[in-house]
């Protein structure tokens, strides 16, 4: 008798590619905005904003999904510093992005896509396998796998 295979569903979304790079990884999803300046430790990739639902989580290598950036424009430099320290996310997906995240992703060469046509914080769950093509604006989500 063989072990039944895990059910895997695949969904593809087409959005707006802002930072035209490619990346993939395990999704880390929050419905709260993220301020990189003061909110994420640039040396470890750990979320350090008190009271944030991702508090204590490591964003290193993850496909980070959140509605939009917030806080100081210095946040762009924190994203760049995460890249230099080896703790950058593999990609970022926003509902609707803004200048702080866009600037940081361009400087750090992290793929950034927004406007998927669906709420990405609903359509993608933490743990899903996600690949992001920032050039084409395509996001591919594999559900049901465990890593």
């Amino acid at each position: 008798m063989s072990v039944p295979e895990k059910v895997v569903s695949v969904a593809t979304f087409s959005g707006r590619g802002i930072a035209r790079f490619r990346g993939e990884g395990e999704a880390l999803v929050t419905r709260q905005g993220i301020s990189f300046f003061g909110g994420v430790d640039p040396k470890s990739g750990l979320v350090k904003e008190k009271g944030h639902e991702l508090f204590g989580k490591d964003i290193t290598g993850k496909v980070l999904v959140f509605p939009r950036g917030k806080g100081s424009t210095v946040g762009s430099y924190v994203i760049y510093q995460l890249k230099k320290s080896g703790h950058a996310p593999a990609a970022i997906i926003n509902s609707e992005t803004e200048a702080i995240i866009a600037t940081g992703c361009i400087l750090a060469e992290i793929p950034l896509v927004d406007r998927l046509g669906v709420d990405p914080t609903e359509a993608i769950a933490t743990g899903d396998r996600v690949s992001v093509d920032g050039e084409a604006g395509i996001v591919r989500v594999e559900k049901g796998q465990r890593y």
Partner: peptide, 15 residues
């Protein structure tokens, strides 16, 4: 803007 070392830190300096 983004000149103060206290604001932009080592990342800004490096960039």
């Amino acid at each position: 803007a983004g000149v103060s070392y206290g604001n932009i830190g080592d990342a800004g300096l490096e960039l």
